[in-house]
Nucleic acid binder design. Structure first.
Lengths: 337, 337
DNA sequence: CTGTTAGCGCTTTCAT
DNA sequence: ATGAAAGCGCTAACAG
């Protein structure tokens, strides 16, 4: 490769570099014969255009940056997948970063990604460090926030209210006759979506006059299956009469379920269990986990569409009015609650 | 941002662009006062260097491309994580692609990524389309193949023998007294690692004079938990006396386990179950899944190190001799087999 | 330690 | 339909 540039191809085809450039764009005005000849040579020599030069010349990177808290999580993996689907078609590549549930790592990643001049940035959640907000403000790049409904969005939003979701699950458990509900979540405030679900738990239990202090914080997010199992121990020793446990995610909920089975605790007879996220394991385990389902892929698709819309508007010199798309969630009643 | 370039900063600091460039590199020769002054202005105006210009000038993209069959899979997510750890420190960014277990999508992604001039490419598996091999050959970029030990590697290799792993599990089950072992895997040959494990199953069952035809192909890879559950049905109706089932991954194995519980089939009393990958669910479920553990993060780290070594050698004009790193795997005996 | 010059490979613009 | 010229923002190489 190395030495093969557009010029090389142009010389071989007996045309100018400009004609090669045009021949490679489907819409440009080149005679059919010339294009065929050029493309044939491109094929022969295995010429691959150099995006770095194109980017530099056009000042369009062809990148959209996307940050998720974790790749090792079906929900976010689905969201990323949804984004790819849409971005691929638009010929835009994704710069993907994993913040590991850390706002400071989010900031570092954004700093690094901004050097690549992404045409839009898709973030997870609506809480960011001050440094991040400064960076984004001076970068003047379209932003999409996902997976939550921030009060003061930075741009477009595609998400749902985690607080409402938490509250909805409490109400569901209450309807099923549960009165002593515990919550298992993550320790720090990094996982702001988890914290919102916990806030929803608090609000709903209070308004139903149920105990609202039965909260076990299992560790640094993401809360794993194993931490869920440990948290059950803590929950039972503090509140032995707990009759339902709702967890910040299906993973911890499954950990609780498995630990109940190990201890011979009847689920849902003695304890009901509810998760969040509708992971495969929730659908498949025995008994099946009651949970909250969100169309994570749709979040990704919709976020990517918003990013593309903002980006197109900018390229046309138009202004893009940021919008908020609410993605529905629903309680999925299964066997554990 | 937009208009703010190195020149802007240079003018404001009363120096040349070159001095700004140097001030931004920690190792370059600039007086402390000058550097401080420049960096202060950089901070004030929020200048972010434009990587596309740097890439174009230096002809070093600062990218390593990495392709995995799926992001929605803990094993590969861990591998990606291991790669990030190493690449981050080296200041190299990752272009991550998800092939969806498709060799033709792998080829498309490589074609797209090559335009970005990655300094190395990390692939999963040792089987690639002819088009992929052509592209890579003419791109002349260092390659690392992971997660397998191909016979004719394209460059460096970091992996393990999936065939040996499959055979090892058969031998383990045989030692535990199982004689009628079935295998559940994916239908197509896209998942070449799964196919290798199946080949190991065939070889080992034959050499132990056990039935080797008890194979259920559950669908297109990746085989899900739900497909594992369905495959159990198929397995039992064809071979009702099966006394052990080994699965291409822990996900399908967990599906089999949950379905056994639903049907009241004693595990491991009547049927032993074994998976692959040592996923969280295998460690946590009840009873715990016997499986094969590989240090997936180490595969990622080691692959990234190989990529960086190849890339550094190239930048120094040295030649890099491709190496093969074998990552150990081990059977993890738990409660299901 | 700092500045100058040149050029990376492509596309935009204008001319033909 | 095609070509020529200019330049995108940065850094390598050399000069001082």
């Amino acid at each position: 490769m190395g030495a093969v540039t557009m010029h090389t191809v142009a010389r071989m085809a007996g045309v100018s570099a400009m004609t090669v450039s045009r021949a490679l764009k489907s819409d440009a005005a080149v005679s059919k014969e010339t294009r065929d000849r050029v493309l044939e040579i491109v094929r022969q020599v295995g010429y691959v255009p150099d995006a770095s030069a194109r980017v530099f010349a056009t000042r369009r990177s062809g990148f959209v940056a996307a940050l998720v808290p974790s790749l090792n999580n079906s929900n976010f993996a689905d969201t990323v997948h949804g984004m790819s689907e849409v971005l691929d078609v638009a010929g835009v590549q994704m710069l993907l970063g994993d913040t590991e549930y850390s706002l400071s790592r989010e900031e570092d990643l954004i700093r690094a990604f901004l050097q690549r001049r992404p045409e839009a940035i898709i973030l997870t959640g609506g809480v960011h460090s001050e440094g991040t907000r400064d960076l984004l403000a001076s970068a003047d790049v379209p932003i999409v926030e996902t997976w939550d409904l921030p009060e003061h969005p930075l741009g477009d939003v595609v998400g749902f209210s985690n607080k409402e979701a938490g509250a909805a699950m409490v109400r569901y458990l209450h309807e099923r006759g549960r009165r002593r509900i515990g919550f298992i979540g993550g320790k720090t405030s990094f996982d702001t979506r988890g914290a919102e679900r916990r806030a929803g738990f608090k609000r709903a239990t209070r308004s139903l006059r149920l105990p609202s202090d039965r909260v076990i914080l299992a560790g640094k997010p993401p809360v794993t299956m194993a931490q869920g199992a440990e948290a059950l121990e803590a929950m039972l020793s503090r509140w032995p009469d707990v009759d339902a446990i709702m967890c910040v995610s299906d993973l911890s909920a499954f950990g609780v379920l498995a630990e109940c089975q190990r201890r011979g605790i009847d689920v849902p007879g003695r304890i009901a269990i509810a998760g969040f996220g509708d992971f495969d394991v929730a659908r498949c385990c025995h008994p099946r986990l009651t949970t909250i389902a969100v169309d994570c892929t749709a979040i990704g698709r919709s976020a990517a569409e918003a990013a593309l819309a903002a980006l197109d508007a900018r390229n046309k010199g138009e202004t893009h009015k940021p919008q908020t798309v609410a993605i529905p969630f629903r309680v999925v009643a299964r066997e554990t609650a």
